[in-house]
Design a protein around this nucleic acid. Sequence first.
DNA 1: TTACTTATGCAACATTGTTGCGTTTATTTT
DNA 2: AAAATAAACGCAACAATGTTGCATAAGTAA
Lengths: 138, 138
Amino acid sequence: MEASVILKMNACRVTQHRLDVLNYFMQSKIALTQGDLEDKFKNKIDRVSLYRMLHSFSEKKILCKLVDSKGTLSYVFDKHSLDNKDHFHPHYKCKSCNDVIELPELPESYMKQLKKLNIDELNILVEGTCDECQNKNE
Amino acid sequence: MEASVILKMNACRVTQHRLDVLNYFMQSKIALTQGDLEDKFKNKIDRVSLYRMLHSFSEKKILCKLVDSKGTLSYVFDKHSLDNKDHFHPHYKCKSCNDVIELPELPESYMKQLKKLNIDELNILVEGTCDECQNKNE
DNA sequence: TTACTTATGCAACATTGTTGCGTTTATTTT
DNA sequence: AAAATAAACGCAACAATGTTGCATAAGTAA
């Protein structure tokens, strides 16, 4: 799916900056922070524009927002951004390479319990060092 | 359990500041941020000292660190700080009053799956508006 | 093309995180 | 009880990030 199509489907204006940013996310396996983008688009896109893009993209679920144990926000392209917007996946993020993988959904029985509460946000992030990085450091 | 005892058991020096902060946590039902403490102890305890206390207390599991969906860190006194340091509870935090309740542990079958990965941190925070706050606004 | 709306860049400021260092204080050792 | 040791503290300073307002530029619709 092309970046411009995704933007249009989400009622976003299609600008060069947005295409650049979204394409960058689409080809990146790892979770990116605002800082990563600032480096990548240094002297090209303003810090505040990036900040606002990240907000609107994650609000529209084009990107998935992750919060790690230090409170750092990072974002990954959400492959499910087009279809099923409501389903929920926990994520695993490698502390070393920032690679993100999707984990299986929580058991339905457990989710049922949770849904008795009024839920706006459900944040699950598992952090550790992935096998690949573990092997590198041995 | 008294605050001073908890500090001693965790190899922390017992100072007045630490007693004040820990006692404040022990009598608070809600999750507190660094900012909350800065207000509470304005002109009494330095910002950096609070920052360092929060770090060492949560490292020693005297406090439990929560990260919300905006990346804001908050802390609650961990009732289990003395016994069972390894067990893990997800938390529910009310976005309105910051009240925190413990949720049941994840099903063991699911945890088993997770433990195949190298896990350092497991962050689960459910956010929403608690019943009490919901009723207030009606 | 014009009108309308959204996105952008810039400035400015708030909040929080973080480190170093000299001083003070709690604890341990003598 | 006094001296030695190690930890905690306050202050200064700076980095990173979050946040808003506003004027300008650019995309989209009529």
